[in-house]
Design a protein around this nucleic acid. Sequence first.
DNA 1: GGTACCCTACCTACTAGTAGGATTGTCGCA
DNA 2: TGCGACAATCCTACTAGTAGGTAGGGTACC
Lengths: 189, 189
Amino acid sequence: MEKTDTKQNILTLAQEFIQVRGYNAFSYQDISDRLKIQKASIHHHYHSKEDLGAEVMEAARVRFMDWNASLDASLTPSQRLDLFLESLNAWAKQKDRICLTGIFSAEWNTLPPKVKKKVDEFQMIRRQWLVKTLEAGRKSGEFKGGKPVEEQAIFIQSAIQGALQIARLQEKPSHYLAVVEQVKEMVKK
Amino acid sequence: MEKTDTKQNILTLAQEFIQVRGYNAFSYQDISDRLKIQKASIHHHYHSKEDLGAEVMEAARVRFMDWNASLDASLTPSQRLDLFLESLNAWAKQKDRICLTGIFSAEWNTLPPKVKKKVDEFQMIRRQWLVKTLEAGRKSGEFKGGKPVEEQAIFIQSAIQGALQIARLQEKPSHYLAVVEQVKEMVKK
DNA sequence: GGTACCCTACCTACTAGTAGGATTGTCGCA
DNA sequence: TGCGACAATCCTACTAGTAGGTAGGGTACC
């Protein structure tokens, strides 16, 4: 009971700090203060900050895989894309957060190796998902043709990542929705 | 001679560090080491790190205004947009840098007030420039209509900001160009 | 003689991480 | 049921290193 709670709470809080302040700008002390446990206790569960960062990404990867697996098989590519874009809106609505890849890619050159690897992996899994969905939509006739799907996937990732950052900066969550609308318009017939 | 050099060198180097590592992840010591001067000497020119960060943005603002003023009056909106997008490609080509707004907006919640203000100002000036250019292009018939120009400008800023981050992460400067192509396709007739 | 510049030496606060002890719950065995 | 062994968890107390910033002195040029 207690045991798994603490470990999970650390992970959840670490993700929050990363999304709100960034990987470099949060410390074990911050977590320690919020959870009312000692710094050394955090080190017991996550040996180093590098490991903690990597675990945050690993958990995000698992959540995305679960989310994908939970999608109804009867959903059209268009509906899948809508759900994908909507899932990120959660961060825009909590106006102090951006997406994980958004902050990690900005801090990229200062990240420890294990974290870099997990971020890259996560990014590629989501890219592949987009590529697969875009291909299916073109085949079904729901989506426009044009640029290679790989490039279109990169474009979508760039736009939504940037949009979340800009929406937070200007305290206008609606900016994210405006970008999403234009992504849909560009992809769909 | 010497005097202005040192002050300018600090500013230039600070911008490099910010674009490469981020605002939180560089220190006066880093600058001190590279320029072979003492930390206290940097404080002489820029009283605090906050001031230095704000000055970096102010210099960027001035450069952008100068760049805009230097544009030939005979250029079409389409040509202006191309030059705008191309100017950011400089960062993609030096593969360890992203744009200033990209890093600052990611670290947003940890930035000191003066820096925040300058970043917001810079972002809005560029947005206005885009809005003006997009409007001119629609009027001249070079650009498509559709979504409000304000929203389209936000979309363009989001896409290029995210693209630079993703291009660096994957060490593929060409990703930025792929996104630029799709921006043009979306805007131009 | 003043002022701009750069220095040495220092401060306090905070960072990630470690050593080692106290507490707790669980499991095997009598 | 009761007891000892063990492992998981969390603690206090500490380390070495780095952060931004300051005090105050020396030098060199107008």
